[in-house]
Nucleic acid binder design. Structure first.
Lengths: 202, 202
DNA sequence: TCGAGATGTTAGTCATCGTTAACGTAACCG
DNA sequence: CGGTTACGTTAACGATGACTAACATCTCGA
């Protein structure tokens, strides 16, 4: 519990440390169920110290969600654009998208949880930007799925995408059931099968 | 918007009306993001009137979750026991479980949402009972899945069950994307495929 | 008719919470 | 050195919110 390490402590890490602790707390008890004092205590400082790093509680949440949604979106964009150069099959691109999302869900369950629960608590300037990024991320998936099965209406593909996210983001609920080593292939297999079933019309 | 109908108004309905409104509000803004005043306003009375019907805010939540989890559990028990009499295949039993859960998710999205987010806010006497019912519900599924593929370890089946719940409960997120008429078969197909993929070892 | 019970209302309480203010201190830089 | 910057502290302030108290009203059964 001795927090100090060097006289000049963890310099830029405080912000990240706070964001990390806040994510876990928000995921566990919800945005309004966590106080500024709680977050401070989780990183070893107390209360109003957070205002040295963030403009306020909502700003903290906004930055957190903005970071998550842009990271997701960027990872998807990277996968898709890098795949267009060679004649990569849409199926392979989809697998890459799946793997990226699975990695994120397994490594950052708290962030994933907060990301799809707490958007409503972000004030309006940033709210729109986050929604936009989320929409772009979904559309990335929809585009790939559309190539996989051109006849399928976009609404159905969107619904299927959300369903797959629901499946993959269930990770926090089954925490501890299965080690990540087994969880990853299980989720991959289930998600792939679900996507195929959705895309192959009935 | 004229709320009165007969002089002797909706007698026993007030409680149900309150629970319904509270479920929607909790789903949208989280337990701590909703005030007693908000819930009262949603049913046309104001504030402390709720204490004529519930002991408090937490008691209201407890009753809501207890009701949901026992209804789910009962529906699953009914499906399973009614299926054992004839030589119903496990696959058919699983389909019945799936359909029941899909119906619930499509008809009561708010309840489903609150059910897997807000357990942490239920005080301890009831918390245990709700957890117990949830566990029994999951075990009902696991039992059926185990018959479907005896070699599969129970932990894997449990994880798969949670993943399927995640898929089916994604309904609130894709609200409006697709009409329920199309949503139901889509969810059914995706869930069935996901279950098969999970159970057939790799 | 009248008293009881069920169901509201408004006004107040007490705790909690987000945020600001005022103040320390240690490192760095001229 | 001396002063700025970065980062903390504790003490308030104001708002909100859960819950209680005191007080109507309406329906109904004896």
């Amino acid at each position: 519990m001795t927090t100090a390490r060097t006289p000049t402590r963890n310099r830029g890490n405080r912000r990240a440390e706070i964001l990390d602790a806040a994510a876990r707390l928000f995921a566990a008890r919800g945005f309004h169920g966590v106080s500024i004092e709680d977050i401070g205590a989780a990183v070893g400082v107390s209360g109003p110290a957070l205002y040295r790093h963030f403009a306020g509680k909502e700003a903290l949440l906004a930055e957190m969600l903005l970071d998550v949604s842009s990271r997701l979106r960027e990872s998807a964009a990277a996968v898709v654009t890098s795949a267009t150069a060679p004649a990569a099959s849409s199926a392979e691109t989809l697998d890459a998208l799946l793997d990226a999302q699975i990695t994120f869900a397994l490594e950052q369950p708290a962030l994933i949880t907060v990301h799809d629960r707490e958007l409503g608590n972000v004030p309006e300037p940033h709210r729109r930007r986050i929604r936009r990024l989320q929409r772009l991320y979904v559309e990335e998936w929809v585009t790939v799925l559309a190539e996989l099965h051109p006849g399928c209406p976009a609404a159905r593909l969107r619904a299927a995408t959300h369903a797959v996210f629901g499946l993959l983001n269930s990770t926090p609920h089954s925490a501890g059931e299965l080690p990540a080593r087994d969880m990853r292939p299980l989720l991959r297999a289930m998600a792939r099968a679900a996507v195929d079933a959705a895309v192959n019309a009935r």
